[in-house]
């Protein structure tokens, strides 16, 4: 008995620095935000929450954030599936391609954002190509489709890499067996490949989703009139100096994120 207590004491002392750091740097700030967001002077303690959620702007901002996050996640999944179907057969340069998709991950988001703004601009190269085809430029920057493209560009590698590493490890013989039995390509895709890649897709897309939902630097400079939650929190607190309102928005954002995470994990468990 004595030995067990001693052992657990050692375990605890080993765990404590990490837990203490997380506590001080994460849970305590979170606590401060919750405290700041409560209005002790107003008639209602949740005054700032109610004010934000009941204003048309509040719901608009939340809707916009969700739209961007879901839209970009969906696009990332589609793009990843397409790429995986092609790269699975190991065409020329597939290794180069695997390095290439690391670029949006390792290069600071702001640089990527600047590049995207320049590239998709009215006189950027993309528009020059488009102009050659349809004879007039299209406005991409500062529009919702534009933001969706930017988000997908930035965050699809997460979905792609996780799913790809899983598909790579799959047993090729299952697929071959299906083909031998006489399944056509679509059937192989529908009944064999997708179900097998599903856990990877879910695990990868959840990360893409989390990042899209919390994206800050990109909408800050590429958003134009569209300001998702993260940017609204920043402007409200750091620029307008209304820290209590900003804190309330931050708590709402964290709660929505946790809600989505939990539902996602549930779906993932069911998928297994």
């Amino acid at each position: 008995m004595k030995k067990i207590t001693k052992q657990s004491l050692v375990t605890f002392s080993l765990l404590s620095p990490g837990l203490l750091a997380i506590g001080c740097l994460f849970f305590y700030p979170l606590f401060i935000i919750i405290k700041n967001s409560l209005a002790f002077e107003e008639e209602h303690i949740f005054y700032h929450y109610i004010k934000f959620l009941s204003s048309s702007n509040g719901l608009y901002v939340i809707g916009l954030t969700c739209l961007l996050a879901f839209g970009a996640t969906f696009l990332s999944i589609c793009l990843s599936i397409l790429l995986i179907l092609i790269l699975r057969r190991k065409p020329i340069g597939h290794n180069f391609f695997k390095t290439l998709v690391l670029a949006p991950i390792t290069i600071p988001g702001l640089i990527c954002a600047l590049g995207l703004l320049l590239f998709w601009d009215k006189n950027g190269w993309m528009n020059l190509i488009i102009q050659g085809i349809i004879n007039r430029p299209i406005q991409v920057n500062y529009t919702i489709p534009g933001l969706l493209i930017f988000y997908t560009w930035l965050f699809f590698p997460y979905t792609f890499l996780i799913t790809f590493s899983q598909v790579e490890s799959l047993d090729k013989s299952i697929e071959e067996a299906a083909e031998v039995v006489g399944a056509n390509r679509m059937q192989v895709l529908r009944y064999i490949l997708l179900p097998l890649a599903k856990p990877g897709l879910l695990a990868g897309s959840i990360i893409t989703f989390m990042l899209c939902f919390g994206a800050f630097s990109v909408p800050l400079i590429c958003g134009g009139d569209y300001r998702p939650l993260s940017v609204s929190i920043y402007t409200t607190s750091a620029i307008y100096n209304r820290w209590d309102e900003g804190s309330a928005m931050a708590v709402i954002m964290a709660l929505i994120q946790i809600f989505f995470l939990i539902s996602y994990i549930r779906i993932m468990k069911r998928a297994r």
């Binding site: 994460f26 919390g214 929190i233």
Partner: peptide, 24 residues
């Protein structure tokens, strides 16, 4: 559970607790 507590800062958008950190 311990692991998910430790990973929590990566799951919640940083802007939410950045306000608290700058306050402290």
């Amino acid at each position: 559970i311990l692991f998910s507590i430790i990973l929590l800062p990566r799951m919640i958008p940083p802007i939410t607790y950045a306000l608290g950190i700058s306050n402290i």
